[in-house]
């Protein structure tokens, strides 16, 4: 492109349109992160559901997989940071939303693990404890170990939030649809046994991240091959 060529008004407008389109078309999410998180959360939720449904044991908590996925995610983020030659305005905000989401997930895990024991201790300090009382009198009363009821519903709520923000900000329909489905699953999970919440978690991971991630990946690879 030369500099000194005199442009007509039409040529100027045409040039502006072309360059704006080039900037838009040049940018594609690679979809790797979405595929990674979609896979690990889906697998962890599904294994947990199967474990509860069919009463079998695995030697470790399947959700440790989710924790382990942080390591490849760090490498993916570094690699993408190196490869990205252009940054869009919404990227900073969306990255911040996902960071806050990560912190919130860890905060919720902390809450889930700490609140039951803390409740027992607080009750004990007040001189009482929670008890199970069988209405039909079939068994004697016994101490109740407190738990957070339907806690996975809260995870579903968290899964939907950054996904919907990303879907709306990036105008990416698969993520928006995935987030809406997850909000519906959240409502359903409030009425079902907690083991089914895990099954809902599997569906949420598929529709929020894995499927949108695969679609993104295919688009990215298609664009990459067309640029060669």
């Amino acid at each position: 492109m030369s500099n000194e060529k005199k442009l007509t008004e039409q040529e100027s407008l045409q040039l502006i349109t072309t360059m704006i389109q080039k900037a838009k078309a040049s940018y594609h999410e690679r979809g790797i992160s979405a595929i990674l998180w979609g896979t690990v959360v889906a697998v962890a939720s599904l294994v947990t559901y199967l474990r509860r449904e069919f009463d079998f044991n695995v030697p470790f908590d399947p959700f440790l997989l989710v924790l382990a996925a942080i390591i490849p995610q760090i490498f993916i983020s570094i690699k993408q940071g190196r490869e990205n030659k252009v940054t869009k305005f919404e990227d900073t905000a969306i990255n911040a939303v996902w960071l806050v989401y990560g912190i919130s997930i860890f905060a919720l895990i902390f809450y889930q693990n700490v609140v039951p024991s803390a409740t027992i201790e607080l009750c004990r300090q007040d001189g009482w404890q929670l008890m199970i009382h069988y209405l039909d009198g079939s068994k004697p009363d016994e101490p109740l170990h407190p738990f957070v009821p339907s806690v996975y519903s809260l995870f579903l709520l968290l899964y939907a939030f950054p996904t919907l923000v990303t879907g709306i900000a990036k105008k990416y329909a698969p993520m928006t649809v995935g987030a809406i489905i997850t909000y519906i699953l959240f409502i359903a999970s409030c009425y079902t046994a907690s083991k089914y919440d895990m099954l809902f978690g599997t569906i949420a991971a598929l529709v929020c991240w894995l499927i949108p991630g695969i679609i993104l990946r295919r688009k990215y690879l298609k664009q990459k091959s067309s640029n060669v």
Partner: peptide, 14 residues
């Protein structure tokens, strides 16, 4: 031509 192209590219990105 070139300066307009540069500014048009940058207008939509951070």
């Amino acid at each position: 031509q070139l300066r307009l192209a540069v500014v048009s590219l940058l207008i939509g990105v951070k």
